[in-house]
């Protein structure tokens, strides 16, 4: 079953076309990899799917509902969560509070509730805290719950971003280069974690440069180059695709020339 579908997605910044008529669909329950050379439009696609940008042309359906004009917070409420390539935690807040914030859209306490704290509010707070601890345990950050987010080492910050995204109770989770800057050990942990998230029944869309990671866990891979989709298939198919080889080889050659 198709969970999310982007049709004919085009994004133009100024005069520059960052995405050009891209069609992409994500099946429920799969781990889909999104790869491509730098500047291919991967993050732009993420930003379209999560409502940060509104596409210049094309449409996006999540569970058959058009979402292209929704704001990011509305999309999160519908069940799409994301992490950021450049890590955007709430640095001054504790690790636990970061995950508690993640549950914002699943809770309802307002100003009056906060001031008078009726039993319902106390219950909610207790539930939220327990759930946050559960999630932290799940990603392996329980001991760090009280630390400030910005004091965590890099690898753990990436995990916290995932924990925070999971706290929003998504059906689909978008991970933007989750392994960037990680050492091999951390990357292996991460692969395990992503697998575990997928086993919980969550659909995963993953941008990643680490080919081993992508080829290892993705059931299907979509390749972008210069804003266009150039391949879509199993890791095996993509690996042998002529266009993909050209794109990557071309990028490598470009680098050498520079």
């Amino acid at each position: 079953m198709t969970l999310l579908e982007g049709k004919n997605l085009t994004m133009v910044f100024g005069g520059l076309t960052a995405l050009d008529s891209v069609n992409i669909h994500i099946n429920k329950g799969e781990i889909l990899g999104l790869i491509g050379p730098n500047g291919a439009g991967k993050t732009t696609l993420f930003n379209l799917l999560t409502g940060v940008y509104s596409p210049s042309r094309g449409s996006i359906y999540f569970k058959e509902r058009e979402i292209k004009n929704l704001k990011p917070y509305q999309i999160t409420r519908l069940g799409i969560a994301r992490t950021f390539q450049n890590i955007r935690l709430f640095g001054e807040m504790s690790v636990l509070d970061n995950v508690i914030i993640g549950q914002h859209c699943r809770t309802r306490t307002g100003v009056f509730g906060a001031i008078f704290r009726p039993p319902a509010v106390r219950d909610e707070e207790k539930r939220v805290k327990e759930k946050a601890m559960e999630i932290l345990e799940f990603v392996g950050l329980a001991e760090a719950a009280k630390e400030k987010a910005k004091n965590l080492p890099y690898g753990k910050q990436r995990k916290l971003e995932m924990a925070r995204a999971l706290a929003t109770e998504p059906e689909l989770i978008l991970l933007d280069e989750p392994a960037a800057g990680m050492n091999p050990q951390e990357t292996n942990d991460l692969i395990e974690l992503i697998q575990k998230v997928n086993d919980m029944g969550k659909t995963v869309l993953l941008i990643e440069h680490d080919m081993k990671l992508v080829m290892g866990i993705c059931q299907r891979i979509v390749v972008l180059d210069y804003g266009k989709k150039i391949a879509d298939g199993t890791p095996e198919e993509v690996k042998n695709d002529e266009n993909v080889l050209k794109a990557y080889l071309g990028a490598a050659l470009d680098k050498e020339v520079k």
Partner: peptide
């Protein structure tokens, strides 16, 4: 004005 886009 162009639409201001925050870099993400």
């Amino acid at each position: 004005g162009r639409k201001l886009q925050e870099k993400v």
